[in-house]
């Protein structure tokens, strides 16, 4: 029902570079509580040791000085993704990796789904790290990180609402065929945020 128009999405993506993030607006003219957003090349290099914090609810990047608040929902640093809950943040966020679905057709979070939270010392993460465990696979012969097709992240935000997130690329400007020269740690992802607190996305 929502899906912002694709042209706008592309236009927004084209404007933003490197540290860019982008929140495309809701469909103009209709009142909806579902937002679809594409984020292009969010820098997660963590060169200062900090994660890059992001609010799915507002579509804004959040300053790392606000890391101890409920302002952010997910955070990125290289291949690690945190949620705002458990040992990672003060809010009640959670997440799990839904395997074997396509982003567009996944519309309902089943009632028996368990949202995980980040545990101690990063031993347990809501979104597990490691090749093949969570959102990506690592190919050591090419040294390339590829998002696993069919795996999406189901996130409970800091405010207890729900979003589905698909990581599309780990490389700057999301090249179709990343190679040794591609710059890594740049997240390109899209997500749908349901603002009314229900577990449906349509």
């Amino acid at each position: 029902m929502i899906m912002k128009n694709r042209f706008l999405q592309l236009a927004c993506a084209a404007i933003i570079t490197s540290i860019g993030f982008i929140s495309c607006s809701k469909d103009s003219g209709t009142v909806t509580i579902i937002t679809s957003t594409s984020v292009n090349s969010l820098n997660s290099a963590g060169s200062d040791g900090h994660f890059s914090f992001y609010s799915l609810e507002t579509g804004q990047q959040i300053a790392s000085s606000d890391s101890a608040t409920a302002k952010w929902d997910i955070a990125f640093r290289s291949t690690t993704i945190l949620i705002n809950g458990g040992t990672s943040g003060p809010a009640n966020g959670g997440a799990f990796v839904q395997r074997g679905v396509t982003f567009d057709t996944y519309n309902t979070i089943s009632t028996d789904s368990t949202f995980k939270i980040d545990g101690i010392n990063g031993v347990v993460r809501a979104i597990p790290t490691g090749s093949g465990n969570g959102w990506y696979s690592y190919n050591f012969s090419t040294d390339i990180i590829s998002p696993i097709a069919g795996n999406i992240l189901i996130v409970r935000t800091a405010s207890g609402k729900y979003a589905k997130v698909e990581i599309q690329s780990y490389y700057q400007n999301a090249p179709t065929m990343p190679d040794a020269n591609s710059v890594s740690r740049y997240y390109t992802f899209r997500y749908v945020f349901q603002a009314n607190g229900t577990k449906t996305f349509n």
């Binding site: 074997g100 396509t102 097709a149 069919g150 698909e166 179709t176």
Partner: peptide, 14 residues
């Protein structure tokens, strides 16, 4: 039953 998913030109498919 879980299947394997792939991506062809940005489109995810089973």
């Amino acid at each position: 039953s879980a299947g394997v998913y792939g991506r062809d030109n940005g489109v995810v498919y089973r």
